[in-house]
């Protein structure tokens, strides 16, 4: 039986700011893995660069801390190499929606069976506060002293458009809901996005826990997440009321399912000792 303690790396010193929303994300991820009975050695978490990039150091599963913005290609290849593994990619809004946006779109349309968690705090934290692609127009930072001139992008709508087959939004102030969303995302067979509203307590003085608590609400049982048009409508809702929960969910063949060469044996388990190339050599004669 896997327990929460099995996932702990107690010895390591945690360096997130007190009150950071990342703590909730880490807890929810551990709880989700335990509840789904995923054994630690069969799970891999891939991180990018940013405050969230430290997460693999504090959870006892296989981890890969890669480059800024490149979590999804690494995670995709791990999944294709061994599709028996549970693969989770996670990073910040700068990592995923700015420098890594191209990979986000393409991984979604490929429907590679991985879970992608974004720590969306609408700011660059680790570089001490610059605007991110989800910062509102007018955000004043050291890099935009006269206010940013760009409109934020909409990760939920973009994910649906790009072909993600599971699209959800969570809030780092609600551990219970977040855990459930992670469970569903990990169980989903296909590319699953959970965009987590995760207030940065140090550099974002606007979108605080309090700010979100006054606005977030949960999509209720009457909402049909298989209705793509309804999903778009909900995705566009942002302001006084911010919906959370599963926006969109659909069944579609995953990338791995289109590869007969791994239908029986994962790539990593296939023997490579004595590949016979005689037939191929003949082709050149």
């Amino acid at each position: 039986m896997v327990s929460l303690a099995d996932l702990d790396r107690e010895k390591e010193v945690m360096t997130w700011c007190p009150g950071c929303g990342n703590f909730t994300i880490l807890s929810a991820l551990k709880k989700a893995l335990v509840s789904l009975k995923v054994e630690p050695h069969n799970a891999v978490v891939v991180a990018g660069i940013g405050c969230s990039g430290h997460l693999p150091n504090w959870i006892n599963i296989y981890g890969f801390g890669g480059l800024h913005g490149r979590t999804l290609p690494v995670a995709s290849a791990i999944k294709l190499s061994n599709h028996k593994l549970t693969v989770i990619a996670q990073g910040g809004d700068g990592d995923g929606y700015s420098i890594g946006i191209g990979h986000f779109i393409h991984t979604a349309r490929r429907n590679i069976d991985i879970t992608y968690i974004t720590h969306n705090n609408q700011i660059y934290g680790l570089t001490t506060g610059q605007t991110s692609p989800t910062s509102p127009r007018g955000t004043v930072t050291k890099f935009t002293p006269f206010g940013s001139l760009e409109d934020p992008l909409n990760p939920i709508a973009l994910a649906i458009t790009s072909g993600a087959t599971f699209v959800a939004r969570g809030f780092a102030g609600d551990l219970e809901q977040l855990t459930k969303l992670f469970q569903q995302a990990i169980s989903h067979n296909g590319f699953a996005l959970v965009d987590v509203l995760q207030p940065c307590v140090t550099f974002n003085r606007t979108n605080t826990f309090q700010w979100f608590r006054e606005r977030v609400y949960k999509l209720d049982d009457g909402y049909d997440p298989t209705d793509k048009v309804a999903a778009y409508r909900k995705a566009l809702e942002w302001g006084d009321r911010i919906p959370t929960g599963v926006f969109y969910r659909v069944k579609r063949r995953t990338y791995s399912e289109g590869l007969p060469q791994i239908s029986k044996t994962p790539l990593v388990k296939q023997r490579i000792g004595n590949v016979d190339i005689v037939k191929l050599v003949k082709q050149f004669m």
Partner: peptide
Amino acid sequence: YGIIAKQTEDEIAAMNMVIGAGFAGVR
């Protein structure tokens, strides 16, 4: 021959995938 040949969105993805696969234990 049991190979995955993945055309990627750019060379950045290609190289990062090569590393992901290498980490996961395949050549």
